[in-house]
Computed example of a mutant assay.
Amino acid sequence: MALDHTTGLNSLGFAKPPAETRVVVAMSGGVDSSVVAAKLAEEGYDVVGVTLQLYDHGAALAKKGACCAGIDIHDARRVAEEMGFPHYVLDYENIFKDAVIDEFADSYLAGATPVPCIRCNERVKFKDLLETARDLDADCMATGHYIQRKLGTHGPELHSAADTNRDQSYFLFSTTPEQLDFLRFPLGHLPSKDETRKLAARYGLPVADKPDSQDICFVPNGNYASVIEKLRPGAAEAGNIVDVDGNVLGTHDGVIHYTIGQRRGLGIGGLADPLYVVKLDVDNRQVIVGPKELLATRQVPVREINWLGDGAFTDEAERHVSVKVRSTRPPREAIIRPISATEATVELLTPEEGVSPGQACVFYETGGSRILGGGWIWKGA
């Protein structure tokens, strides 16, 4: 692909031919990042594929469909060989454990519901790997995330993917403006995942029919508690299930087995009305349950805010935006009231159920696709 005659830029936004543009592609071994690498290689870019080994191969090979497991590294290497570009595997086990897994365990033990995929993007892929890309003299780094990077009046902006069913903006809110300047997301404009698989088939990629990974890469079958027990032996201490007045309704085998909003599997049947987990008291080893209406939250305290909007975060006393408090929920209208450059109170105009410490609160332009940043919901929720 040559330069665009209108702008004088190539498809990645550089004023030079693709052959003179080096791009490092973060390859997980899945179909998305493989298509990105193949697409850019076909367009004539100087592609370098990099795959991260994030955890022990022995355990990883036993987990079908996990990101960056042994089979995934093998698949990424096969794609690179097929398309004729170099591919490197970097050992990031220690970095991943220190930056992601340990915090996941500690956060879960503290009664929060962490989102390790966000921390992985923030602390590993878009930090250490991005620096590695710079060390390789790359002009940019491309990933298979479904999100869009668009040029605005003040520089690059982050926008939701064209396919709302695949949009990964919730997991990328902590991307900084400096990182966004270096990153590219070639799949964000595609209308559906089917289009990605069609491209994979057209390029003849061996991963064209590979299923998507469903779970957190180091959590087999979505069983968080079993992973925590391996990481922190003895962490699952038994305690009581109590109602909001402190009455004991039953016992449990560890707070780590419960999440805010949970209804099923409480082991306290026979009650007239359904009860939900409304709070986890780790210090007293109590799972506190109550009626569904107690889950409704309007005021959400947020910290560690990464602001991607125009101007400084504290320029305005309040901002009317839309927010997501869970990755699976649509954005809802809210008001952000800054406390400092990195802290705020978010008022939800319509109360949300099951707002949990450890989840992210991501800010969106109301009625638009732009991501304005976000932060972490903390204990006051």
Rank of each mutant, 00 (worst) to 15 (best):
I371W: 01
T297D: 01
G375H: 03
Q286N: 08
A15P: 05
G44Y: 09
E178F: 01
D273T: 15
K16L: 09
D212T: 15
Q286T: 03
G234W: 06
S160P: 09
A225L: 11
G375W: 00
G358W: 02
V355Q: 02
L151A: 04
R77W: 10
G144L: 01
T259P: 03
T196M: 06
A60K: 02
G261N: 12
V242T: 09
I260F: 06
V23R: 03
K193Y: 03
G246A: 07
V277A: 02
G8K: 08
E316G: 10
I228M: 07
V31C: 10
Y364C: 02
V325D: 09
R123P: 02
A76C: 00
M27K: 04
C140L: 08
E304M: 12
L158Y: 07
A37T: 04
F85K: 10
P233W: 10
V244T: 15
G358R: 05
D181F: 07
N165S: 12
P114Y: 00
I73R: 09
I101Y: 11
A341L: 13
S107M: 11
L294Q: 08
G374C: 06
A41S: 13
E42F: 14
Y55W: 15
V325Q: 07
Y108M: 14
Y224M: 15
G373F: 03
P291F: 10
V323Y: 04
C67D: 14
N10P: 00
T175V: 13
A66K: 06
A59Q: 15
K230Y: 13
T297Q: 02
H74A: 13
A26K: 07
D283Q: 12
E103K: 14
A161I: 05
A133L: 03
S226W: 13
L130G: 03
P206F: 08
V124T: 02
T7R: 06
V346D: 05
E304Q: 13
V24R: 05
V242M: 08
Y45T: 10
G267K: 09
I95A: 12
N247P: 03
R184A: 04
